[in-house]
């Protein structure tokens, strides 16, 4: 049996181990254990009763459904964007590249009120769309736009380095074998980018599912219609209903966990397909 820590001449093992574990426990692990503890002492039956209400189900469904579609948009657009940034040279490329990170850097509440101001019926875009009977703000579409915004950088940033690494000779080989450029893109390049794109998709999805700040302003928070799951947690907390909040929180964690596990498995499968790198 191999030792727990392989002997090493490096200094600072106990110090770095101590800092890491203490801070990880205090900031992340113990609070998360407190959530699970609250759920356990409340009981599975009562927790289920909290979740098994129309309003909660609708909110959970809404959160995951819209997050999924936002991540899906970001998957497709993110891959395109990464490809354009890596392969094409055009004036302002650096600026575009930097702009991709804005959703990371911009506080979510700021993004929320800005998007609302744009898409509200009296806003810049909202007033353009109003004559056509299209409402964005205070509908599911508004939530979708907010979640697309916050998840925008993930896929691009994971795909970019992989796209940069693609060996041009492989593309040339495909062309010399008679394949059209489109065929090469679909059959040779897309499979190479797939694992990274999936990683980005998973990150964008995880972020979108839990997103709160940018959504609550534009969503309108109409019960049963545009209420997202994190908002229900906040509402339970405002009524000091800790058990209810814990139940919904645990449900969200559980669903996220299952989703991310599924994506991980998909990724392992696609990496295997890419061949034993």
């Amino acid at each position: 049996m191999r030792p727990f820590v392989r002997p090493s001449p490096m200094p600072g093992l106990s110090l770095s181990l101590g800092i890491t574990l203490t801070m990880l426990s205090l900031v992340v692990l113990l609070p998360m254990a407190a959530l699970l503890w609250q759920g356990a002492s409340f009981g599975i039956g009562p927790m289920w009763d909290v979740i098994d209400r129309d309003r909660v189900w609708k909110a959970l469904l809404l959160s995951f459904r819209v997050a999924f579609f936002a991540a899906l948009f970001n998957l497709v657009f993110g891959v395109l964007l990464a490809w354009v940034l890596v392969r094409y040279d055009f004036p302002g490329r650096r600026l575009v590249d930097a702009a991709v990170d804005l959703p990371f850097a911009l506080p979510t509440a700021v993004a929320g009120i800005a998007l609302t101001a744009l898409y509200a019926p009296n806003g810049l875009f909202g007033s353009w769309l109003k004559p056509y009977g299209i409402k964005i703000a205070y509908t599911e579409w508004g939530i979708l736009i907010a979640l697309i915004f916050v998840g925008l950088p993930f896929v691009t940033r994971t795909v970019q380095p992989v796209a940069e690494e693609i060996d041009r000779e492989v593309e040339e080989a495909s062309a010399t074998l008679g394949a059209s450029r489109f065929y090469t893109l679909c059959r040779v390049i897309a499979p190479m980018l797939a694992p990274a794109a999936l990683t980005g998709f998973a990150l964008a999805l995880a972020r979108a599912v839990g997103e709160y700040g940018s959504v609550i302003f534009i969503a309108g928070n109409i019960p049963m219609k545009t209420e997202i799951a994190p908002l229900l947690i906040v509402m339970q907390l405002e009524e000091f209903n800790y058990n209810g909040a814990a139940a919904i929180g645990i449900a969200m964690l559980a669903i996220s966990f299952v989703l991310l596990l599924a994506i991980n498995l998909l990724q392992i499968w696609s990496r295997r397909r890419i061949g034993h790198v």
Partner: peptide, 14 residues
């Protein structure tokens, strides 16, 4: 990264 900020806050409250 995969925990909702609201759930993070909830954990601390609990």
């Amino acid at each position: 990264f995969s925990v909702s900020p609201v759930v993070a806050g909830l954990c601390l409250v609990l």
